[in-house]
Every structure is written in C-alpha cells, then in structure tokens.
Write a protein that binds this DNA or RNA. Structure first.
Lengths: 245, 245
DNA sequence: CAAGCGAATACAATCGATATTTCGTCCCGA
DNA sequence: TCGGGACGAAATATCGATTGTATTCGCTTG
C-alpha cells in the first residue's frame, strides 16, 4: 500500500532521497522537537554547516518547511522559526478539534474491516511501547506509533485532504508539546485514554469517541499551555533574532 | 491590517518580491488556469526558459507549489502537474463543504461589525464586475473579487489555519473549473447565489447561509464534473509525460 | 527469427562554489 | 537630533560540475 499523500506531508522520509529531502527531514525533526528557539533566525549558512549540504538543498528544504508553517519566510530577509504563543496554541487546538471531530465521525460512518484492524494493531503496538526513555526523554518510537494510531482513527474518512490537514495540525501540536516540555511524567494515563477512544470508535459510538478524542486533545493542549505560560513568565520582553544554538 | 497569513498561501504577490517568488506566482497562475496539461512533466529547463530565471529560483518555486498540492514532486525525477480526476474532484468538494460549513458557522457565531462591513463591500464590488470578458474568457478581476468575497464570509471564524485550508481548497476548485472549462456561460445566476449567501449570513441565519453556500459549491463542482467527464471521454487512454505547451 | 536481458549513451535533475543584490546598521554632517 | 550615505553581513541568483535516471542499441538465447 503506497502512501502517496495528496498534500506534501508524509510521516516518514522516502527510501530514495535527494539531499534536499534529507536536510528537509532533519530540519523538520529539529523544529518539531523544539531544538531551535522559536522566532530565531535560521541562517542558510548555519544550516549548510550544521547539516552538511550546499546552499541550494538547504534553501529548498527551508522553502518546503515554510509552506508547512514550520518556518516563516521573509523575502530577502531569510527564514525564521515559526513563533509560538498561548493564543496560537489555543487557535491551533480549536482548529484541530474541529477537523478531527469531522474526520473521526466520517471515519466511523464509513468504517471497514480493514480500518478496524489497523486501529487494533496500532493500539497494540502503542500499548507495548514505553512513553519515555530512561532519561525521561520522549521515546521517538512511541511518538511514531502515537502518530500512526491517531492516523488510523481517521483513515476511513474518505478525504486525503482532511487527513493531510490533521497531520499538519498534529505536527504543530507536537511542536508545542516539545517546546513547552510539557508532559513531564504527569499522573495522566494516556494509554487508558487511547484505549477509550479506540473502543468507542470500534463500537461505532461516534459521539462517545469524539468526546473522548477531543478531551484527549484538549488535555494535552492544556498541559502545554500551562508549561508554555510558565516558560514565558521569566522575561516578558519579546526577544527576536537570537541565533539557534 | 497586515496580512501575514499563517500558512503560506496569500492571495496576491507581495510588493518586494524575490525572483523565486515571481516565478512562483507566475507558475501558480498558470497551474490554476489550467495552462499546463495535468500529469505532464514540468521540466526545470523549460521553466527556466519560459519564465526567464535561473534553475535555483525555479526549483524553489516548484518546491513551494508541490507543498501546496499543485505539483507532484518525485525525488530525482522532477516535477509533474498534479493530475485531475472525477474522483479527486468529488473528494475535494466533499472536504471543502465540510470545512467551509464549519468556518461559516463559526464566523457567523463570532460576527462583528467589521466582518459585516467586509462582506457588504466585497459583495458590492463583485456585483459591479463582469463575470466574463468580451471574448468569453474569465475575468481575472472577477476571480479575485470572488475569492475576496468567499474569504470575507469566513474571516471571523477565529482560525487562520482553517482559513488557510479553505483557501487551498478553493484554489484547487478553481483549477478544476478552469481545466474543465466549465461555466461556459450557463443560465446560472451566480450573483443571486452570492447575494443569497451573504444576506442569510448577515441575518445570522447560519443554517440557511450554510445551505446556500454548500449548494453554491456543489453546483459549481457538478458543472466542472460534467465538463471534466465529457473531456475525459474522447480518449480513455491515460497519457503521461506530455510536455507543457 | 523473435524476445529478453544488459550495458552504454543521452538527458535531466541535483549540487556546490562563486558572483550579485539587498537589507540593516553605523557614522558623519547639517 | 535627524537625515543621508557608506559599509558589512547575509540572502539570493547564476553557472558549471556532478550524479542519477530513462532509453536505446546490440548481443545473447530460446
């Protein structure tokens, strides 16, 4: 089953990759994990040195990321890491809930045997994977499976556009999670939440599944929001143009 | 009020433009107007000659367009005009109706004086502009105002993400309209449709406005669909790799 | 003799180094 | 103190070199 997504946002790098794509995936990963300070400038020269590629591939990668909303592009002035703010996060979450609700309802309405299987399998692997690594760092494999699980839920919605949009918003949400360093091992039982969503979806209980899903997203958002606000407290001054570490 | 859109899809080129951006807007325009055969390969060399720029700017522009779903990018093999099909159009329309409905409902729920004014003004100019030029060609100014009008309707939805997604889908729909050469001066009274939508929206009649809006979109889609199918009839053979004119 | 496989060739995308343009800043003069 | 011009840093563009892919031609084999 080839994954030729309609809009350009597949979840994993292709096998045969061009150099520009390699840089794209690396930089994307760094952006999603909050490795670069929001609002800071990303100089081409820096990226060239950091990722070991020429200016052309780097520039291409940055253009793609700008189209996805991970970078800001100012003509003749270069690229900047997309800024974050509490307001933006609330707007993001709101939008995400709207779209995911629609996608999930459609998915349930058009459920197939195949769709059910994918959810069951995704939940299975998610349940058998550690949320955090020993060091308290997020487990990349869990992140991937988490993404797969949520993708499986809405896979039957019959709109690749909607799926693409949801993925894009999910990426943004992930970015906020990592930037805010939220989820520092709270008492939250994420697996139970996922199980709840899956169970209700598989039962065909659209209202229940949607309710569970949105509570799941809103809770995550709330935690990020709190962490974000406490991080923004220290200095109220907006700081711009701080180069990446 | 600056229009720094969140996702990268402003409706008009910026004043101070880089060469890559110039190519981007020109090529985008050509793609939206169906000037290039769907599924045909767009060679970098061709674009270089056609738009009078170097390979790097062209390549950048193409990467951006690929992210927006107007081009397909195959690593190491170049770019292709995104293919069209009846199925794709139906999927597109479906998604568009979902998102526009949500956006319009939210917009009406959060309506402001400013929002009302913008709609009234947009409708005014739209009503005073010719749909077609003398030659039966679509009037670019009307296209622009049409876009502005539909943008104004959902402008108060409090989600730049949703607005951006709607714009992206609107662009795709426009592309289908032009490719199918639909709307060949049918007996349709588009102005009345727009008036109807605006009136109901301004009255706060969400259900009525949504109904009118979706009928509007579905009708457009249906016309494109018919024209598309009649165009696909002549030769059932899928033809690939036909260079652009 | 036809079909299939393989290597060589041609074409096009990709890349890196260099040149050019632009923007921001600092300094000087009014 | 404010306006204008020059300097420097950085983005942008061009060009030539490289790499990768598709095609074609020729050979082998059934």
């Amino acid at each position: 089953m080839t994954d030729t997504s309609l809009s350009d946002a597949p979840s994993s790098p292709p096998a045969r990759s061009t150099l520009a794509s390699t840089v794209y995936w690396q930089l994307r990963d760094d952006l999603l994990h909050g490795a670069l300070e929001p609002n800071s400038k990303v100089r081409v020269e820096w990226a060239v040195a950091h990722y070991g590629a020429g200016a052309s591939p780097v520039r291409e990668a940055m253009n793609r990321l700008a189209s996805e909303g991970l970078l800001e592009r100012h003509d003749q002035r270069g690229f900047f890491v997309m800024p974050v703010s509490a307001d933006e996060l609330m707007e993001l979450t709101r939008t995400r809930c709207w779209l995911e609700e629609k996608a999930l309802r459609e998915s349930i309405a058009n459920r197939t045997r195949r769709w059910e299987e994918e959810i069951v399998v995704a939940l299975h692997w998610l349940s058998r994977t550690q949320r955090y690594l020993a060091a308290g760092q997020a487990n990349p494999e869990w992140e991937r499976l988490h993404r797969v699980f949520h993708g499986a839920l809405i896979a039957a919605c019959r709109s690749r556009w909607l799926i693409g949009f949801c993925e894009q918003l999910a990426d943004q949400a992930r970015r906020y999670r990592h930037i805010a360093r939220a989820g520092g091992r709270s008492d939250r039982d994420e697996l139970a939440e996922h199980r709840d969503i899956a169970t209700k979806a598989l039962e065909g209980d659209a209202d229940g599944a949607v309710d569970a899903l949105l509570r799941h997203y809103r809770l995550t958002s709330e935690l990020s929001l709190q962490a974000l606000r406490s991080r923004e407290m220290p200095d109220a001054r907006p700081r711009r143009n701080r180069g990446p570490a």
